[in-house]
């Protein structure tokens, strides 16, 4: 049951990321929080975060093939929705990045620093591939730095939020048994 739900969640992530990217805010929309939010929406920020989410969900007892498949599906959808003539670029990028991510996070319990490194790196790689295909358009460095910064901030925020309960509600560590402890107990100061 848990596996089935995890697989459904994986497919949902793979489906919703391209949907979200279709809802790019209008360039002149006064309501958009970030200036130039449309560029970020169309960059590799959302797919990179989606890949990270897929790895997280895929670790709930699913074989490695499942996130692989979900990433390939997401890439295919992104390719279908993109205006670029280079069909398959997003599919290959997403699949290979997923391979890298699940290799990097192969240990059952990943450390926060691993996420803080892996997802911005995935963003940089994914964006760079599209920049190469577009022959390095003007302002690509700024765009790349912005995308990587945003993903880093999101990952750090996500890590803090998910780790807070562990910090606050973790059981107190057991007192280590040692001779000195035992002696201290037997001979209190007061």
């Amino acid at each position: 049951m848990k596996r089935s739900l995890s697989f459904v969640a994986l497919l949902c992530v793979a489906y919703l990321i391209p949907c979200l990217m279709c809802l790019a805010p209008d360039p002149g929309d006064q309501a958009s929080v970030l200036p130039g939010a449309q560029n970020l929406w169309q960059g590799f920020t959302l797919p990179a975060l989606g890949l990270g989410l897929m790895v997280l969900v895929g670790r709930c007892g699913l074989p490695a093939l499942a996130p692989f498949l979900a990433a390939a599906c997401m890439g295919l959808l992104l390719d279908g929705l993109s205006d670029s003539n280079r069909m398959g670029l997003q599919t290959i990028t997403c699949t290979l990045l997923m391979a890298g991510l699940i290799w990097w996070h192969s240990v059952p319990l990943s450390q926060p620093w691993q996420w803080i490194i892996s997802l911005p790196l995935a963003t940089a790689l994914g964006s760079t591939s599209s920049f190469i295909s577009l022959n390095f358009p003007a302002g690509w460095i700024t765009q790349l730095v912005t995308e990587v910064s945003i993903v880093t901030i999101v990952v750090i925020a996500g890590t803090i939020v998910t780790r807070l309960p562990q910090i606050y509600f973790a059981p107190a560590p057991r007192e280590v048994f040692s001779l000195s402890n035992r002696w201290n107990r037997l001979t209190p100061d007061s």
Binding site: A64, L65, F68, L69, A72, G75, L76, D79, R86, M87, G88, L89, T91, I92, T95, L96, A99
Partner: peptide, 16 residues
């Protein structure tokens, strides 16, 4: 696994 290898090969064939 062979399935994973097959998937990667298939994605590489998409541009063709």
């Amino acid at each position: 696994s062979p399935a994973q290898a097959l998937l990667v090969i298939l994605t590489l064939l998409v541009p063709l």
